[in-house]
Design a protein around this nucleic acid. Structure first.
Length: 207
DNA sequence: GACGTTGCAGCATTACATCA
DNA sequence: ATGATGTAATGCTGCAACGT
């Protein structure tokens, strides 16, 4: 009997024997999965098929080999199996399960690293946003100051030309008051014109 | 080249053991 | 006794190698 026939025979045996419960996920699919029978046989059957935990010594050796190489060639499997007094199939299964655990662990590690990176970026974003808010406030204050000074200049020029106060006449750059030394030209940038400055497009969001 | 068989890996799932 | 967790084992699928 070939493998397929074997499987079909098993399927029909199980279906004829009853299929008490299908997991929700499986039930939704067109193809039901085969359900394994519970191991509730007699004592002999139990001892034949009962799941046995590997000894610490066996696990240690398997771990050692897994550490060297995650893949298991046929020759190494047989050698390991006889060394451990296990069925080669058991060794293959152990490696398969171990690879799955290793993969899960790696995924978890990768996830926690990505999460911490993400948290850092979020933190930095908050910091930059608060900085932008502060700068916006300063900008607003500076604009008001310019307007106020402009009005004074206008009044002065209409009353007494000789006492006019001009921007050029100021002893020190007034912007220093706002901690914006060296940014004298910042107010000459027209609104929405940040699009023209590489890397500064985001500023328009705040204008 | 087409087809069947075999062996293996990956994945999902199940069943059992153990522990809190 | 029971639910959570860990893990050995099983079922299924896809793929590659090989023989016919």
């Amino acid at each position: 009997m070939n493998k397929l026939e074997d499987q079909m025979a098993l399927i029909s045996q199980i279906y004829l024997g009853g299929y008490p419960q299908v997991a929700p996920q499986q039930a939704a699919e067109s193809k039901p999965r085969r359900r394994r029978k519970k191991n509730k046989g007699g004592e002999n059957n139990l001892s034949m098929t009962k799941k046995r935990k590997l000894s610490q010594e066996q696990v240690d050796l398997l771990e050692h080999h897994f550490g060297n190489e995650h893949k298991l060639e046929s020759e190494r499997k047989d050698r390991l199996a006889s060394e451990l007094g296990l069925d080669p199939r058991q060794v293959a299964v152990w490696f398969q399960n171990r690879r799955a655990r290793w993969k899960n662990k790696k995924l978890e590690e990768e996830f926690s690293k990505l999460k911490s990176d993400h948290d850092e970026v979020v933190l930095e974003k908050c910091r930059l946003e608060s900085e932008v808010t502060k700068l916006k406030e300063k900008l607003c204050e500076a604009k008001k100051e310019i307007q106020r000074l402009g009005e004074r200049v206008d009044r002065g020029s209409s009353n007494s030309p000789s006492s006019s106060l001009t921007m050029e006449a100021m002893d020190t750059p007034f912007l220093g008051e706002f901690g914006l030394e060296g940014y004298d030209n910042v107010f000459y940038i027209a609104e929405n014109s940040y699009n023209n400055i590489p890397g500064m497009e985001w500023m328009n969001m705040y204008m």
